Computed example of a mutant assay.
Amino acid sequence: MNPQDPLSQLRDIHLPATGGFWPPAPGWWILAVLILGALALVVVVLLRHRRRNRWRRQAILALTELEQKAEPTPSWFARLNTLLKQAARECHPESQPQALSGNAWVEFLIATTPAGQTAPRQALEAMVRAAWQPSVQADPDEAIRFARHWLGGQKC
């Protein structure tokens, strides 16, 4: 090698040092923000859905308690009708179902029964009348089946 030769002092072609993975490129920052935003939106929607259906969970829990203590007495049917009216007030506040009684209450239950199954009118009338008549003609098991179906099918 000649020290006077400037070409001999040149180094061979070399690759630049690789950049680390941090800091990420702007596209990755944008993707991270979009993913976090979508995750926050999903959490908000799930919490709102859970809060909106709290009445249904509480009503089904109360219905399960009533089912365990099922007896053909006026007081039991009164508690069942009260439970249905509380649920109806949550789901159909514009109809003011808490003020309905007798045939108007039966008509409301029939009108708001979910599609696919309708309870026999006589069974509903017996269930509603059983709350204030001394002799009960209604079947508690049939009333529980109707109440469970009615609560499960309400769209609020």
Results as ranks from 00 to 15, higher is better:
Q4V: 13
Q4Y: 01
D5V: 14
D5C: 14
Q9K: 07
L10D: 07
I13T: 14
H14E: 11
L15Y: 02
P16F: 03
A17D: 13
A17L: 08
P24T: 09
P24W: 10
A25R: 14
P26N: 02
I30E: 11
L31N: 06
A32F: 13
L34E: 07
A38F: 03
L39W: 12
L41Y: 12
V42N: 13
V43G: 07
V45P: 02
V45S: 09
V45N: 09
L47E: 14
R48N: 13
H49N: 15
R50H: 12
N53Q: 13
R56Y: 01
Q58K: 00
Q58I: 03
A62C: 11
A62K: 04
E67F: 04
E67T: 15
Q68L: 10
K69M: 06
P72F: 00
F77H: 07
R79Q: 14
L80M: 12
L83S: 05
L83R: 09
L84V: 04
H92M: 04
S101T: 12
A104K: 11
E107I: 01
F108S: 01
T113W: 03
T113H: 09
P114M: 06
A115H: 13
T118M: 12
T118A: 07
A119Q: 11
A119E: 13
A123P: 05
L124T: 07
L124V: 00
Q137A: 15
Q137N: 08
P140G: 09
D141F: 03
E142Q: 07
F146C: 04
H149L: 13
L151A: 03
